[in-house]
Simulated scan of single mutants.
Amino acid sequence: MAVARRWEFAGARGAITARTWPNPDPRYVAVLVHGYGEHLGRYDHVADALVRHGAVVCGPDHAGHGLSAGERVLIHDVADLVADVHTVAAAAREDHPGLPAVMIGHSMGGLIATRYAQLHGAELAALVLSGPVLGRWDALSRLLALDEIPDVPIDPDTLSRDPDVGKAYAEDPLVWHGPFKRPTLEALDAAIRAASAHGSLGALPTLWVHGEDDRLVPLDGTRTGIEAVRGSDLTERIYPAARHEVFNETNRDEVLADVTAFIDRVLAGSASPPA
């Protein structure tokens, strides 16, 4: 198993802890962007698969998440999280000049990665979106309509058919197990609208993977967002009966194989990496 090196930097709103999984002879950079309430430490197995595939892997714990500073899960503006991811990606480009970069975002991280690609797409060779919060998220609309946000945490059973995944999530002290905060919901809503308004990702090769039985970020709502941002090179993989965290699903090996095959296709077709 690849072992990550932790490092810190001054983020948009406080100290950010990032991780880098090294590779002595990488052929590309993979930037991981985690979801709401979790942290990048839950992606060790994803990073390990990517390192074995030829990547040097990196990514931050978002502000207010995991090991990073800030009030827990408080997000004022998704642009701040995009800026922090940009800092990590820039450091990787400086350490590995000339290597193509692939960004992989899950759930809220898919929204962040989409906004990153819309703003900095020339820096990326490819984009992978896993169960991204895009388009229409009815749960968000329902919560924003309430006078008071209920103290109802994310149900671990919605994450995966593998019961060990839900158990580990429920017992993880770095995972947020409390309610959403209204400023965070408002920031997510604004970013979802901004992504749809910005529109096409152009020619950026994009892979969208999603669980058919995703009850946390339902497929049909995300599809409206994908249609709003899709460019000329979109690959879609919908996994029957899979839930929200396809990288943690019972068919995780299939999902990771689809991701690495997509990356191989992109890298084979790249005459030269982005600057």
Score class of each variant (00 low, 15 high):
V152C: 02
P150K: 14
T158L: 15
K167Q: 12
R136S: 12
A145T: 04
Y169E: 01
D157E: 11
P179R: 13
P132V: 09
D147W: 07
V152D: 01
E148S: 15
P150G: 15
A139D: 13
D164R: 01
L129W: 04
G131T: 09
D157G: 03
A145P: 01
P153Y: 13
R161P: 00
T158S: 12
S160M: 06
V152G: 03
L140A: 04
E171V: 03
L140R: 07
G178F: 13
D157I: 05
K167W: 06
L174D: 02
D147Q: 15
E171F: 02
T158A: 15
I154W: 02
S130R: 03
S160G: 06
Y169P: 00
A145M: 06
R142I: 11
L134W: 01
K167I: 06
E171L: 06
L129M: 02
W176C: 11
G131L: 09
P173G: 11
D151L: 10
H177R: 05
H177W: 06
L174A: 07
D155Q: 06
D164N: 11
I149C: 06
A139P: 01
R136Q: 13
D155K: 11
K167F: 08
R142K: 13
E171P: 00
D155E: 11
I149W: 04
D147K: 11
L146Q: 10
L134G: 05
L159D: 00
W176D: 10
I154E: 04
D147L: 12
S160N: 10
G131Q: 08
S160L: 04
I149G: 08
R136W: 13
D151M: 11
V165R: 01
P156D: 09
L129I: 09
P173F: 15
W176P: 00
L140G: 10
L146S: 04
E148D: 15
L174W: 04
P179H: 14
I149V: 15
P153T: 15
A139V: 10
V175C: 13
R142G: 00
P153K: 08
P163E: 02
G166V: 05
A145N: 03
Y169M: 01
V175G: 09
I149E: 08
D157T: 13
R142F: 14
G166T: 10
E171Y: 03
P163S: 14
P132M: 11
V152S: 10
V152H: 08
D162T: 00
G178T: 06
H177D: 05
L159Y: 03
A168I: 05
L159I: 02
P150V: 15
L129V: 10
W176K: 02
L140S: 04
H177I: 08
D147N: 13
K167T: 02
A168S: 08
G166Q: 07
V165K: 00
V152I: 12
V175S: 07
L129G: 01
A168R: 00
L159P: 00
L144N: 03
L134V: 13
V152N: 07
D138S: 14
D162L: 01
G166P: 07
G178W: 06
A145K: 05
L134E: 04
L146C: 11
I154P: 00
L146D: 08
S141W: 07
L174K: 02
P150N: 09
G135D: 13
S141M: 08
S141N: 12
L134N: 09
D172V: 09
K167E: 09
S130G: 09
T158P: 01
